[in-house]
Design a protein around this nucleic acid. Sequence first.
RNA 1: GCCCCCGUAGCCCAACCGGCAGAGGCAGGCGACUUAAAAUCGCUUCAGUCAGGGUUCGAAUCCCUGCGGGGGCACCA
Length: 857
Amino acid sequence: MAHEHDTASSDEVYDFAAIQRKWQPVWEELRPFRSGDPADKRPRKYILDMFPYPSGDLHMGHAEAYALGDVIARYWRQQGFNVMHPIGWDSFGLPAENAAIKRGIDPRGWTYDNIDQQKRSMKLYAASFDWDRELHTSDPEYYKWNQWLFLQMYKKGLAYRKDSWVNWDPVDQTVLANEQVLPDGTSERSGAVVVKKKLTQWYLRITDYADRLLDDLNQLEGRWPSKVLSMQRNWIGRSIGADVEFEIEGRDERVTVFTTRPDTLWGATFMVVAPDSDLAAELAAGSTDAVQERFADYLAEVQKSTEMERQSTDRPKTGIDLGRVAINPVTGERMPVWAADYVLADYGHGAVMAVPAHDQRDLDFARAFDLPIRVVVDVNAPVTGVIPVIGLDENGDPILPDEPDPLDPARTGVALAGEGRLMNSGPLDGLSKANAIKKVVELLEADGRGRAARNYRLRDWLISRQRYWGTPIPIIHGADGTEHPVPEDQLPVLLPDAAGLDLKPKGTSPLGAADAWVNVPNPVDGSPARRDADTMDTFVDSSWYWLRFLNPNDDEKAFDPREAEKWAPVDQYVGGVTHAILHLLYARFITKVLFDLGYLSFTEPFTALLNQGMVQMDGSAMSKSKGNLVRLSDQLEQHGVDAVRLTMAFAGPPEDDIDWADVSPVGSAKFLARAWRVAKDVTSSPDVQWKTGDPALRRVTHRFLADAPGLIEAFKFNVVVARLMELVNATRKAIDSGPGPADAAVREAAEVTAMALNLFAPYTAEDMWARLGYPPSVALAQWRKADSTLLIEETVVAVVQVDGKVRDRLEISPTIAADQLEDLARASAAVQRAVGDRGIVNVVVRAPRIVSISTRG
RNA sequence: GCCCCCGUAGCCCAACCGGCAGAGGCAGGCGACUUAAAAUCGCUUCAGUCAGGGUUCGAAUCCCUGCGGGGGCACCA
């Protein structure tokens, strides 16, 4: 009893652990996924998975992403392509630094230890990566080129420093992210009231590219998820309108405001400036002492409020009168100038013309402070000319709304944002909105008081981080405040050793305390100077890593434009929707910059994008605190790599979230065992003639071969798996109760199953392939061509509908002529019964599928 | 407030250009094998497509309205 399984091979059972142990070293030896052979003549495909941040070990989210990306990479390899499918590590960033601070260790060691662990897991997971191209963004060999890129942008004026307001914790002496500030305005760490502080920060001028970033999204239509496209469009947030200049009494320079409704200029009754803008400070300074005092108090109040408070829309309006006067450029009216925090300093010009009758925010403000409201658009007379009436009088004439106008915004508190005819607007009277905008822009331009303009929600990209574990910014500051780029031949500016540095956040970079590192001679005259101590946002690293994969070990240049010509842009990018905005926007921006600099011949980095959903448990995101964490390592141990991967692919459309409670890795494992047994049961040898095989099973096999490629290319992986199950079921039936295990069609089906299963379950597929008599690797087996003669059915069933109901089914030839089919349908007894004596009025024939007969007109 | 996506068996999901609502799985039921159970194998129940209206010979599919769920942006002038 004890040793039966050692001797009788037919008793062998599917043992995923043994199969994994068997094939992993074989692949390690064979390295079937290398893509760097210059003599390789196959056409190329660049399939890229978003590279991971190395924190701890792989989790379920990684498992899903890499399972799906691998289906695509393996598929194109089987279609005869030289597939580049690289992997690397996004290994700079805060988690490493926080862990280092907590445990008093070096972030470098923590990071590279994690990478070791994750790399082992990744290899077990058997994603078909080309490990020859592995890179780490925290290696000097990588971040040197971040610095190079920064310098190229600096030279072009695309990298610059400016002062900006940041959240400042006065107790911890540190900058806080918005997320670290609690809704009551205190620090989540120290409990201190957070204030705004002006700091000098590095920015990249992404707003210069706003139009291109927006307009080029059109090229990606249909190839990127529409959700991502709309998120990017929202984020860039282009508004079309006009800049209008207002004179200010007692000030030489005019104040410019941006508005999307220049047509309502006659209705502008006051001006509002952002309290935290330079303009507000200057206007206040030119006012009375009382105003200056009130302004100082108000500004302090505003700066105490958090981003979250400030952006909540249902907050009562606050503000103060600055005691200054603006002149409406078209009416010549004197308008008060207010400071209020509903106007943002960093959008437009930090000042607005308030048109309370037609803008809800301005109306709320006007009603709160008793400012004048003037209606200049008659929404009762919209462009269509239809005037809503209350009723008809005894003569049948329309009764118009009584005075006062029931829509009067001053009374209703509802701004009239709709379209209508202009009124109270001098030369604009009677015009529609579109024509009025055109006209007023012409008038302003002629007068030199305004022009058409556009604005963006998008802000410049703040890349300074006052932290240690990132790319040092390659700038040297002279004692006199001058900036000097580090000469390119002196790159990289290496991160100093963390030993001896206090990495705790304190508002200035820990690098500033590395005396030996930070103090350098001025490159111009050798006088004492200091290195810039900030490090770069890690989104800089990930904005171009896909180019570094082309030749990750090149120490002459960031990437090779000739290789980029061959491989780039990325044919298929795969990753989570969490990066739908920032990472993708930054990568698109850097691509356009590199195009402008002449390094690239294309302007979009990722031709196609697939977003996988998230893995959840019991309806919500997995987390330790919720107690619904599913550990990938446990799943792999219980069900095996292949079952987990297959489950990820089979769970549903890739972009949908997977609830692990809804799916069945046990079911996947059962299916894999079933497929594996089919291969084990095949008794014929590899040299059988396919043609001799059972035609029914062959038809199932070849329908699968014909349909699967289209399904894969449409990312319908779940459907392909279902079709594979169908194929395995049919093969099982053929073995047990059909032509038997020696039939050529059974072998053919088993081989096709192994070949296709390689996409989802590479270990099982490889073992099946070996049992069927072939050397590794099945991953290199080419996709079999479907035999088209087997796809044609001998007979098909046509349905006959009478008045939309199916009344008969006819077994016919697929090539039947329409009139012949109609005759058959008319002759059907069931159809005649259904038609009865009503008579046929119409017949629609779609041979060979359907005949539709109607009996009523 | 503005914009987008999705509602199909108990559950996860299929359904081509508008043409028989079901490919596959989970769960359930019955049976075979077994002393029994597990595993395996076979058979099998289950919806008329969220609701209402429209277009059409014909609608899960296209259009409109509503309900429900999810997402993005939001004091952005």
